[in-house]
Simulated assay, not measured.
Amino acid sequence: MSVDAAVFREAMSRLGAAVTIVTTGSLDAPVGFTASAVCSVTDTPPTLLVCLNRSTRARPAFAELGAICVNVLSAGQDALSNHFASPMEMSERFALGHWTTLETGAPTLEEAVASFDCRITQMVEVGTHTVIFGAVQAIRLGGDVGGLVYFNRAYHHLPYISAN
């Protein structure tokens, strides 16, 4: 049975996902893009996966540099997400936000809800995308703020609710 690509995309738009900015490189030569195709693989060892369109100009840097940082955006950071999704030059993207590094040297967004600093362990080509697996080397937790999700082709702000 064949599934129509447009129907698949419409169904996937109804699968809400956290909005992230995924980075590589260094503070001197940063590379990054907005992604919602990020998920946990396992907690032993802590590992994430990120899907990156193979045609993006950022793809070669991720293949060469061996590190990624997944920066989870908070409610109200819609403009930052759009900024990183735009066609502007990489250096211009990093003009917004405050950037530092953790273990791998990949740029880490200080205002992120959480940042997962990873070494790339594997890259697998699947259709139009590259699936990047990253072993988490360091984590930085941000403030107690709400989350930003993408659902039905729009941003939605989630409130912060304490687990206590």
Rank of each mutant, 00 (worst) to 15 (best):
F116E: 02
N53A: 14
F62E: 02
P46Q: 08
E110V: 15
L27V: 00
T101R: 01
F62D: 03
T34I: 07
D43T: 13
S55C: 00
D43N: 08
T101P: 07
A29N: 10
S36D: 09
A106V: 03
E111L: 10
V113D: 04
E64M: 01
V113H: 08
F116S: 05
L65A: 04
S81P: 10
V38Y: 02
L96Y: 05
A58C: 05
A63D: 03
M90R: 00
D43M: 14
E92D: 15
L65V: 00
G25F: 03
V41P: 05
E111N: 08
L102V: 05
E64G: 00
D78S: 13
P45H: 09
L73G: 10
N82Y: 10
C51S: 14
A106W: 07
V50W: 07
C69V: 11
E111F: 08
T100M: 11
F33M: 14
T108P: 04
S81T: 11
A95G: 07
T42H: 09
T101E: 10
L48C: 11
L80E: 10
A85F: 07
A79P: 04
A106H: 10
P107M: 04
G66E: 00
Q77N: 10
G25T: 01
A75P: 11
H98N: 14
D78N: 13
F94H: 09
T104G: 08
A79T: 11
L52K: 09
C51R: 12
H98K: 12
W99K: 04
I21K: 01
S26K: 01
S36T: 15
G66Q: 04
P87Q: 07
G76W: 09
R59W: 01
P45E: 06
A37W: 08
L73Q: 05
I21P: 01
L96E: 13
F116G: 07
D78P: 10
L80A: 15
G76L: 09
V22S: 04
G97H: 05
V50F: 11
A35C: 15
A37I: 08
P107W: 03
T34M: 13
S115Q: 10
F33N: 03
T108M: 15
E89I: 08
I21R: 00
A67C: 12
R57Q: 01
L49V: 07
H98L: 02
I21D: 02
R59D: 00
T47G: 13
L109V: 04
S74G: 15
I68K: 01
R93H: 08
T47W: 05
V70C: 02
G105D: 03
A58I: 01
S74T: 13
A67K: 06
R93C: 06
S81M: 12
L49F: 11
A37Y: 08
D78V: 09
S115I: 09
R59F: 00
F84S: 00
T42S: 15
P45Q: 06
G25C: 03
S74H: 13
L52R: 02
V31P: 02
W99G: 00
V113K: 13
G66A: 01
A61K: 00
D43S: 14
L80W: 14
T100L: 02
N71G: 04
S86M: 11
S115K: 02
M88E: 12
E92A: 15
N71E: 09
E103N: 12
L48A: 05
P45N: 09
E92C: 10
R93A: 03
G105P: 05
S86V: 13
R57N: 03
N82M: 12
S86L: 13
V38F: 11
E111T: 08
